[in-house]
Amino acid sequence: MARIISALMSWGGLASLSIALLNPLVGFGQQKLTKPNIIYIYADDLGYGDVSAYGATKIQTPNLDRLAASGIRFTNAHTTSATCTPSRFGLMTGIYPWRQQGTGVLPGDAKLIIPTDRISLPKIFKKAGYHTAVVGKWHLGLGTR
């Protein structure tokens, strides 16, 4: 049976949901754990009370509620910014966005603001043997720098 660890963290209108699925592999009569699958759901304008597992009453979020009920819920989180581009920049690089010029909210045709040679969260995951992908709003610029 898979074990689910989930976290919903909210701050300044941004929320992050991190899900790790631990799937045991059985081989040669021994049970081994594979690396967890890790999924970040990073949403703009989602507050702590906007998910029914955290107290929302006007909308129901049964799928997120199921993840929250079967995992670990974190209720204290912090971010470097309350807007999309700088908060994503901070998450991906571990660097305060106010320490790098050009990390304000970007237009849709902006150039890439994270140099391709910089250490980033996806590169750390890749080095650990993970495959990475981004689906949805990137908002960190396009192309090469």
Rank of each mutant, 00 (worst) to 15 (best):
L8A: 10
F89R: 03
V134D: 00
Y130L: 03
P107A: 08
S10C: 08
N63Y: 11
A15E: 04
G55V: 15
D65P: 06
L142Q: 15
G104P: 00
K35R: 15
S120Y: 03
G108V: 13
T132F: 00
L112A: 13
V51A: 12
S87I: 04
G49P: 02
H131Y: 05
N76K: 11
A15Q: 08
V26G: 00
S81F: 04
H139Q: 15
T80F: 02
F74V: 12
T57I: 11
G143C: 13
L121Y: 02
Y42A: 05
T79C: 04
L106S: 02
S6W: 10
R99C: 01
D109V: 08
L8K: 10
L8E: 09
T34N: 04
H139V: 14
A20D: 06
I113L: 08
I38R: 00
Q31N: 00
F28T: 06
T79D: 01
V105L: 13
I119E: 05
A43S: 13
I119L: 09
T80E: 07
S70L: 11
S6M: 12
A56T: 14
A128Q: 09
Y48R: 08
A56C: 15
G29P: 02
T75M: 01
I124M: 09
Q30M: 03
P86Y: 07
G108F: 11
S81K: 06
N63T: 10
Y54N: 15
L17K: 08
S70A: 09
G90D: 06
Q60H: 11
T80G: 03
